[in-house]
Design a protein around this nucleic acid. Sequence first.
DNA 1: TGTGTTTCGTAGGGTTCTTGT
DNA 2: ACAAGAACCCTACGAAACACA
Length: 470
Amino acid sequence: MDGYMVHGILEDIAKTSSRTEKIAILGRHMSDPVFKRVLVAAYDPFVTYGLTPPKCVGAGPQSLTMDSKFWTVLEQLASRTITGNAARDLVQEWLLDVLDEPSSKVATMILNKDLRCGITAKSINKVAPGMIPEFTVMLAHKFEDKRIKTWPVAVEPKLDGLRTVIVVNDADVQFFSRTGKPFAALDHLAPVILATLNKARAVLDAPDCPLDEKRREAFSRMLGKHGLSVVLDGEGVAGTFNETTGALRRKSEAASDTVLNLFEVLPRRTFMANDVVPLPYTLRRAFAEWVLMHAPENGPLRLVSRYLANSPAEIQSFYQSFRDRGLEGAIVKPMSEHYHKKRHYGWMKIKAQETLDLRVIGAFEGTGKYEGQLGGLIVDHSGVAVRVGGGFSDEERVRLWERFQADDERGLTADPLTEAFATEAFAKGCTALGHLIEVEYHEKTPDGSLRHPRFVDFRDDKDDLWKEAA
DNA sequence: TGTGTTTCGTAGGGTTCTTGT
DNA sequence: ACAAGAACCCTACGAAACACA
């Protein structure tokens, strides 16, 4: 197979909107080494190339085959042997002068880490299990009380930091983000983790172990039959959210003030090899409590607290008490649910929803499938221009982009961040600019912007200027 | 050497379409 | 008919790496 054929197959996959059909096409070509290499190069999340390729179409002589030197170029980019302008120039040369047109297109898509045909690692792994490495953890859905079948449910505080997953295999301790990227800034916590686990192990093995035999057996298996073999899951917190992201990503120094707020201690082999760790929350919680009993007091390892709620009202009151303590929200966990390595209703989050009515001062075009449509609206939030890019339906993106462009041609001259802007927009009959929209968001950021802003609706009804005109 | 830009990563917010129950 | 899965848009912000004056 060569670049021409790969490109043809990707076009076939792009053409059909049916997922089963996409997977069937993938399956027909999965045995080809070039095709496989393209898929892995594009979708392995642990390989990145450190640049955005220039938009250019090749007219060179070479096709992308197994022997192509382009694979070497990719390796050099991935290992950052070649970076910066040198990387940019080399890539441009390959895309323009070396590779032929279809191969150049495929190469560009690889560098963009997106083959533009409606597939990702999930679909590929369905056809060829394990081909694309995936690192997944359990995530929470939004809270819905109809999901609760039995009471009580566990309610835990939700902390605002970075998800941290710690893999312990004997004396080897590694720290990962929720997507499997290493957190080297936490390596200094390995000794305290090992000490805690070893202490727990010693108590289990002692003749005067306080646990009954059945429980001792179960905990012993969960801790690892031979040596230590567990995965700890929790939230790393080092100050505010921004301080935490900074500290944990920093390579130059250890994140020494980090507290690991742990909520799971899972058997490592089961975690690594399966999509589900088939142990009920109650057992996992009991095990985590018992393991972390052996952590040093007031040290960096903490077990997140847990409360039991017997009604939706009790859940809300726990949530409110967490908010009053300055915490981000609550996680609700039905007691019999297993640990699923995906977004699952076994965990449900409750978070604050704030809303504001803000004036539209601009707009921007979308990218990808939203090219030529609205990417988002820009609003004035007490002098700070905030980009609101979520919450629109596809239809609204088309309509609003047209409205904005018509407004744009009216040639507004006032400073967008002043009161005069709305007056001028009104005088010139704008249909988007100068109007109020309701924006939902998570919180105000230290810079006076909004975290996770999304569009709700136009609110001319709340705006004297436009209300009178209507 | 300092300043600005790009890339990548963290966190999160959504809509749309297909498939499975 | 409804839920779940998958794909793919969008945000703010920090660190690192690089470009350029």
